[in-house]
Amino acid sequence: MDQHIAEAIGRPDLIRLDDRLICLRFESMKVASALAAVRHLLDTGVVRRGDTLLDSSSGIYAHALALACHRHGMRCHIVGSTTVDHTLRVQLALLGATLEQMEPCSDLKLDQKRRVERIHEILAEHPEYHWMRQYHDDIHYLGYRAVAEQIRRSTGEERLTIVGGVGSGASTGALARYLREDSPDVGLVGVQPFGSVTFGAEHVADPEIIIAGIGSSIPFGNVGHASYDTLHWISFDAALAGSVDLLRRHAVFAGLSTGAGYLAARWERSRAPERTVLFIAADTGHRYVDSVYARHREAAAVDSLAPLPVTSPAELALPWSRMCWNRAAGAEPVSARQCDQPHFVGGDHELDPVPGAQLGEQP
């Protein structure tokens, strides 16, 4: 029996949508990483019960950290994006978290920059606060070991490809790392929005939106580039089509990043008939009722969509591009070789160690 609601929220469900397509569905994915990170900090004596944990968030991580602090008797201080909505503000208040929300801003890069500046101001005023550095500290990998073990138990000997948003690198990178301990040929497909700097798409703007949570306008320190075999850049419109189809076809009501992951997963499954493809549903669809699901009549048929194959970030184009990354450690892929068949070469690569956070890095 769970001792706190956070433990239940952080544990995902595995749903087999067909014989080779699995959905790893979270109510709120970052709860798993926040819980494990806070527990580790307490166990190692870095923080004590009653200390204040600090971080910046556009919403989901704020809720996750507030829950973890509630579970372990910590104080929580969040510098929130303009995107934090009323529902979350009320929950944070009742959970005892302090929220400083940025003034409205249409430029997400400027919003992140202002949050970074405020984090440093707070640390100067309160050096006793512990900065969680969700975008830089690989402590946030720890919570996904149990998820990887759950996947391994449920899928057995199936050859797996994991598909999910890159984001800070913690969820997809961690799952690949832990699953590859036993099965080095586990494939990892990262999903990015156009405009994200992480894999060099900052020069291509999506006229609708940068999909929050799977990309960034600033560099993230805990993305292990060498973990990824293939990348998909997916626009808002294409992700909307994926989200709508996922609900219609499989009754899974999930967020916009899940629609993007589902679209990429369907494509990868079609290219590798010997593999089972598992995609991550990081959160539910409630935040997207008006912006996505109410526009279901605008959704393109997913079977009519296909990615543009590219060999360099310079070739990226809306609405959907796909590139073989080949577990390259830097900002460019190792080569432009095909990654369709064989799909992944697995054991020919070493795992990329995730860079740890350094003092003074930006969130």
Rank of each mutant, 00 (worst) to 15 (best):
G45H: 12
C76A: 08
R48M: 04
A66Y: 00
R71W: 13
S81K: 09
Q91A: 13
C76T: 03
V90M: 05
I78R: 00
Q91P: 01
R71A: 15
L65W: 11
V90A: 05
R49P: 11
H63W: 02
R75P: 06
L67A: 00
L88E: 08
L53Y: 03
Q91N: 05
I78N: 02
D55H: 06
D85E: 06
L88Q: 14
V84A: 02
I60W: 00
V90H: 10
R89A: 11
D51A: 14
V47R: 10
G73Q: 12
T82R: 05
T52F: 10
H40V: 07
L92N: 08
V79T: 08
S56V: 15
L88F: 05
A66C: 02
L67F: 01
T44E: 15
H86D: 03
S57W: 05
G45L: 14
G50N: 13
S81I: 08
V46R: 15
A68P: 09
L88H: 01
H63F: 05
L94V: 04
T52N: 07
L41Y: 14
V46G: 13
R89N: 12
T52Y: 10
G50R: 04
R71P: 00
V46W: 13
H70R: 15
A62I: 03
T83N: 14
S56T: 15
D55G: 05
S57T: 13
G50C: 13
T87R: 02
T44W: 07
C69N: 02
Q91M: 06
Y61D: 05
H63M: 09
V47M: 12
G59F: 02
L94R: 13
L65V: 12
H72D: 14
H63Q: 02
T52I: 08
A62D: 06
C69S: 06
M74T: 00
L41H: 15
A93N: 12
T82Q: 15
L67I: 01
H72I: 07
Y61A: 07
S56M: 15
D85T: 02
S56Y: 12
H40Q: 13
V47D: 08
D85L: 04
I60A: 14
